[in-house]
């Protein structure tokens, strides 16, 4: 079983991202859980969301305390929240940032596991002309976790976008573009 913890700020779509990932994994035949931790739901307040992805039925219903992966939707959370708490040593952290990966590694202190970065906001701004880093982060985390291969991801997301954007088909292609770019542009290890 893979456990993922998402860190974002209220309104940035960490919950949506976790549900998108759950959806994508579900479509490849996995058992999934996707849930946010509901606190005081204020715009901008730090919040977390979780995923579990498994080959077998998931019975546990607590939050995730020892994640395999941590996704940081907003790099201003570094230092503000204990992002690496419980993260397995063999695990990885993915940060949405415009900063250099070495700088992020430094800011994260002495984390021994893998560190990845993606400038999902830039990709989103360029492809979608708006800051919706969700789908790009989704592509990046799929690349890192190898939950599915690139072809499956693209096929999956196309189906899901066709459904989701049935009334706005013009945004499907830019979203697909963002996914392809993010899958390839994630760096680190």
């Amino acid at each position: 079983m893979i456990e993922i913890r998402w860190h974002g700020r209220g309104g940035q779509g960490a919950k949506t991202a976790s549900l998108l990932l759950a959806d994508a994994a579900f479509n490849t035949g996995k058992f999934i859980q996707g849930f946010p931790e509901y606190g005081p739901e204020r715009m901008g307040a730090p919040m977390t969301a979780y995923n579990r992805i498994s080959e077998t039925e998931i019975r546990i219903h607590s939050n995730v305390y020892e994640p395999d992966y941590v996704v940081v939707v907003d790099d201003s959370l570094i230092g503000a929240v204990d992002l690496l708490k419980g993260l397995k040593e063999g695990g990885a952290v993915l940060v949405n940032t415009a900063e250099n990966i070495e700088k992020i590694r430094e800011k994260l202190g002495n984390f021994k596991g893998r560190v990845y970065t993606i400038d999902a906001s830039k990709i989103s701004n360029e492809c979608l002309k708006a800051n919706y880093p969700n789908t790009s982060l989704l592509a990046a985390i799929v690349n890192i976790t190898k939950i599915m291969n690139k072809e499956d991801l693209l096929e999956n997301m196309l189906e899901s976008f066709k459904h989701k954007f049935s009334r706005k088909p013009e945004v499907i292609e830019p979203n697909m573009q963002a996914i392809k770019r993010a899958y390839d542009e994630v760096i680190g290890g």
Partner: peptide, 12 residues
């Protein structure tokens, strides 16, 4: 059934 834990968690 449990609020949030079940009501708001997406599962198979």
């Amino acid at each position: 059934y449990d609020g949030f834990i079940t009501s708001h968690s997406v599962e198979n």
